[in-house]
């Protein structure tokens, strides 16, 4: 564990908190992509299969990871529940049109081609890494379709993007300090994922400087 990894995870938790806060306080899930939330649900449930095999009390780090994994899984399930049930009437279905089956199929094909080892567990893990890299795309498309973005929604996406950017710092740190060299798959996908946010980051920082709401062109 290093400061970048810890800060990244804190931002991830903050982003989830902001998302739920937005939905709860405005009694609306307008501007939130159900498709992105659904993709994260798939990402977490395929990535964290090891919850079934790992003893949480194996070490302090495994315990920490287990708590976080359960938190991510349950919060994304809860978010989907809120969008599909309680605040269904506010869901912007017309604009949330990204064809996610292409993302899922593409990630599955990539996972079959690129993986660390040829085992079901490693292929499913690779699938989750590929899918996470592109899971934000429906959300970004939805924002572009609607243009105006509520502050709290833009903070949510900013935190989510920063979380993965900090993971890159964490990997650089570990490369030099712990000599971890065989992580090319996570590094490559994490970098692609962070680059997807680049455009958003630019407009977010611009809007924060001007003290205005984020407006995407």
């Amino acid at each position: 564990m290093n400061i970048f990894r810890l800060a990244a995870d804190v931002l991830h938790v903050v982003s989830i908190f902001l998302l739920l806060l937005k939905i709860k306080t405005s009694h609306s899930c307008a501007g939130i992509s159900l498709k992105t939330q659904f993709l994260y649900m798939i990402v977490f449930s395929t990535r964290y299969l090891d919850l079934f095999f790992t003893k949480p009390w194996h070490s302090a780090l495994t315990f920490y990871n287990t708590i976080m994994k359960i938190l991510f899984l349950s919060s994304s399930a809860y978010t989907i529940y809120l969008i599909r049930n309680r605040y269904k009437h506010t869901y912007d279905k017309v604009h949330d049109t990204f064809r996610i089956h292409y993302l899922i199929a593409g990630s599955a094909v990539l996972a079959l081609v690129f993986h660390i080892r040829l085992t079901p567990f490693e292929i499913i893990w690779a699938f989750s890494v590929f899918l996470e890299a592109v899971a934000i795309m429906p959300q970004l498309l939805l924002l572009q379709e609607t243009g105006q973005v509520e502050n709290i929604t833009s903070h949510y996406i900013f935190c989510l993007g920063s979380y993965r950017a900090l993971y890159i710092c964490n990997w650089i740190w570990r490369y030099f300090m712990e000599h971890r060299r065989n992580q090319w798959l996570a590094w490559a996908c994490g970098t692609v994922q962070t680059l997807l946010y680049a455009d958003f980051f630019y407009y977010y920082i611009l809007s924060q400087r001007q003290g205005k709401k984020l407006r995407l062109p």
Binding site: R5, T54, L61, I116, N182
Partner: peptide, 10 residues
Amino acid sequence: GDDSEEKDEL
């Protein structure tokens, strides 16, 4: 590293 070391991130 071994398996447990490789999958120690979220």
